Amino acid sequence: MTTVPAAQNDSNADDGFATMAIHAGQDPEALTGSVAVPIYQTSTYAQDQVGVLRAGYDYSRAGNPTRTALETALAALEGGRFGHAFSSGMAAADTALRAMLKPGEHLVIPNDAYGGTFRLIDKVLVPWGISYTAVPLSDLDAVQAAMTPATKLIWAETPTNPLLNIADIAGLAEIAHQSGAKLVVDNTFASPYLQQPLALGADVALHSTTKYLGGHSDVIGGALITSDQELGEAFGFHLKSMGGVAGPFDSWLTLRGVKTLAVRMDRHCDNAEAVADMLLSQKKVRKVYYPGIPEHPGHDIAAGQMLRFGGMVSFRVVGGQEEAVKICSRTRLFTLAESLGGIESLIEHPGLMTHASVAGSSLEVPDDLIRLSVGIEDIEDLLADLADALA
């Protein structure tokens, strides 16, 4: 089987972000002139002779033109050279970890990492022979102290899920590279519109494309982007060998979402800023987590490495878990559901939902914490809905 090379970013470097989101890897289709990238719903491709491929494709696990278009677009948006699209964000994370680590090696992770990432590392990779240390990545001294001769990877989220802590990407990259390690940044919460880790020194940007990149809560996917050719080739090999590829229809849906990422993210940020301000004035709210608040401990770093502060807001309430659960059940427009980054607003209780897997561990989240994915509805309606739920 011949492997199609990893999709490379060949877009015009002078193009703006929104222009690349619409055009990178998405030229009109040659045969008919179709402006939209076709859905190449096929598993295999005819060969003119044995081993002579018409466009580099022989089997859709190895490569598919719709997926290639998405991979090219994502690489362009992250300012990377190589992009790979996966069937889920966790498939992307698993591939990155297995391609970059081997048994006996060590990684550093956030002490408030996403529950699914923690579960993968703690329950799947530790039995495989990997070890890890969880530290607050906002504390560079703590990160430095956690590095060992066996450390080959720093795994970062910024902002983190669900406490919205901020890590200094450039600072983490310096620590990693001085120790001969690599830095992966899960850029899901920020999206490439708000933050580009590769430009700040990271080796890999990871996404759950299910979230802001897809943007419509109708597709599951993941992505890895890098400018390191060796890593790009390793990700491509593991993707083909392990098989967690994005299908053509899922790739098409994600690509459609990518086209409107810039305009959607501006509206998400507008609404989240207003929601955070409103929550600060509520008597039932004990604490608000949003990097756009000047008092947030990571505000200055976020302001330096992000375009804006994102669409995610978390807060703690008076009355503990019981009251938090009640508030989650009382909203009308904020739908009680897991996931995030869609056009509709969502509310959830991390301790009982997305982060239940860290219960009882050092990564356990507060039981009075509520997480909001602020959508793009009219802000007056969202504020009224939250006020009613908190009343």
Rank of each mutant, 00 (worst) to 15 (best):
I379N: 11
C328W: 01
I343A: 14
A274E: 12
D58N: 13
A324T: 08
T160N: 05
H296D: 12
D266L: 10
G244V: 07
A246S: 15
D277S: 14
V325A: 15
V374E: 10
G83D: 09
V52L: 13
S179T: 08
Y40P: 00
V4H: 15
S281C: 04
N161M: 11
T133Y: 01
E323M: 14
N12G: 12
Q282P: 01
T44F: 10
E344Y: 07
A324Q: 08
L77D: 02
E78C: 15
C328Y: 01
S314D: 06
E157S: 12
P192F: 10
A55Y: 07
E338P: 00
E377D: 15
K283Y: 03
M306A: 08
D367T: 14
D250Q: 13
G56T: 00
A167K: 05
V37L: 04
A234T: 07
P136D: 14
L77R: 02
R54G: 06
K283D: 13
T226R: 08
S227Y: 10
T42Y: 09
V258I: 15
L255I: 06
E322A: 13
G129R: 03
D141W: 03
I154S: 05
G80N: 07
L231Y: 05
G360Y: 08
T2D: 07
V108C: 05
W252G: 10
L164F: 12
L369P: 04
V52P: 01
V4P: 05
H23E: 14
L333A: 12
G16P: 09
P38C: 05
K284Y: 02
R286Y: 09
A181R: 02
K211C: 14
I39C: 14
Q26G: 00
E338I: 10
R81G: 01
T254F: 03
G89N: 05
T32N: 13
D15R: 03
S138K: 05
G16H: 10
V4E: 08
A99Y: 03
A7L: 08
T66L: 03
T160M: 06
P366Y: 11
P65W: 02
T160G: 09
H106V: 02
S191D: 10
P297L: 07
S314F: 06
H349N: 08
G342A: 13
N271Y: 02
F249R: 11
D15Y: 10
V143C: 05
P110W: 01
G236M: 10
I220S: 12
T254C: 15
L307F: 08
G298K: 03
G341R: 01
A190G: 07
S88I: 04
A55E: 11
I22C: 06
V126L: 11
L333G: 09
A181M: 02
S11C: 11
I121Q: 00
Q41R: 13
I379T: 11
N64P: 05
E344Q: 11
I347Y: 03
I376M: 11
P38W: 02
A6P: 11
R371K: 04
A62R: 14
L340Y: 12
P197I: 02
Y212V: 09
C269G: 03
S362C: 06
L382R: 00
F334R: 09
H238T: 00
L74N: 02
D94S: 14
G243N: 11
D381A: 11
G115C: 08
S241V: 05
D300A: 15
F82W: 15
S339P: 00
L198H: 03
A93D: 10
L340E: 03
D250V: 03
P162N: 11
T66W: 01
L253T: 13
L340P: 00
P297K: 08
T226S: 14
T133D: 10
